[in-house]
């Protein structure tokens, strides 16, 4: 209850308005390129290279039918899902117990091991693609979903361990203790109590793993060719010798990203805290 005089009050409301306007401008800077892409997906080839750029025009749905019929959107989506779904499930399966272990147990060299795992996420894709490609060639698993799944595990597992660990850390020990008193085994506590309590975090982890794998470009381009080609590499199909097919490309990208966008918005809270590995949880 400060500032009872009129002056500061007016100033305050003005400040609020400025805040809102600037906030909208900032938001627009980040959304505009995506809106622009959406516009591209409804433009003809000539409209897309027009000068000055067209903001108002008669939309065409031609690009979407082309993306689906001519450029086989759904078959690429199927390829993507064949890789991404097992990747995410396996990542969680492997990393959930580990993250629980890191959260709930004290053991020798715990910190060193945890940081070693984190550092694995940092390996540059270009550095590991070469050996993956060569080994993949020896094992005859190039262009099979398995090689992408394995490659994606290498960055998803460390990530999921760290992220889930932060969510398990949040669960009060007392809750688990109560479970133990009731005679549940360690595994029972994990499955019946901790996991359900961390389901928000689980969803966020799954979504981030999905985004990372679904959008991955370098591995997908070099380790697969025909049978396993995933959506992000499809852009190369639109980057033609004589022209970028802006319309079909934008349509394909929007179709591909839309579900991810919605999912990410829905779990935004856990997403943000998970991305920081729980560092922001008021400690």
């Amino acid at each position: 209850m400060k500032g009872l005089s009129l002056g500061p009050k007016v100033r305050k409301s003005l400040k609020r308005k400025v805040l809102v306007v600037v906030g909208i401008i900032i938001a627009l800077v980040f959304i505009f390129p995506i809106i622009w892409m959406a516009e591209m997906s409804f433009k003809t080839k000539a409209q897309n290279i027009a000068l000055p750029p067209l903001f108002v025009f008669t939309p065409t749905f031609e690009n979407y039918s082309q993306a689906i019929d001519k450029y086989n959107f759904f078959s690429f989506l199927k390829n993507s899902l064949i890789v991404v779904v097992p990747t995410v499930l396996l990542s969680l399966l492997v990393s959930l117990p580990a993250s629980y272990g890191f959260s709930r147990f004290n053991f020798k060299k715990k910190k060193d091991i945890a940081f070693w795992i984190l550092s694995l996420r940092m390996a540059p894709a270009m550095a590991v693609i070469l050996p993956y490609f060569v080994i993949g060639g020896f094992l005859r698993i190039l262009d099979k979903p398995i090689i992408l799944i394995v490659a994606y595990l290498s960055f998803n597992v460390p990530f999921a361990i760290w992220m889930m660990r932060s969510f398990f850390d949040e669960i009060p020990l007392e809750v688990e203790e109560a479970g133990m008193v009731e005679g549940l085994s360690r595994l029972g506590v994990f499955l019946r109590i901790s996991l359900p309590l961390a389901r928000g975090g689980l969803a966020a982890t799954a979504i981030l793993c999905t985004i990372q794998s679904y959008n991955e470009f370098a591995f997908a381009l070099f380790l697969t060719s025909f049978n396993t080609r995933t959506l992000p590499t499809v852009v190369t199909q639109f980057q033609s010798h004589m022209g970028i097919l802006w319309g079909p490309m934008a349509a394909t990208s929007l179709l591909a990203t839309f579900p991810i966008m919605i999912a990410a918005i829905l779990v935004r809270k856990s997403l943000v805290s998970g991305m920081s590995f729980g560092m922001v949880k008021g400690k």
Partner: peptide, 17 residues
């Protein structure tokens, strides 16, 4: 929400756009 959207876009597509 506005901030989440760019992160979900496939980087290779973002580059072309």
């Amino acid at each position: 929400v506005a901030l989440i959207l760019p992160m979900t876009l496939t980087p290779s597509v973002a580059g072309l756009i």
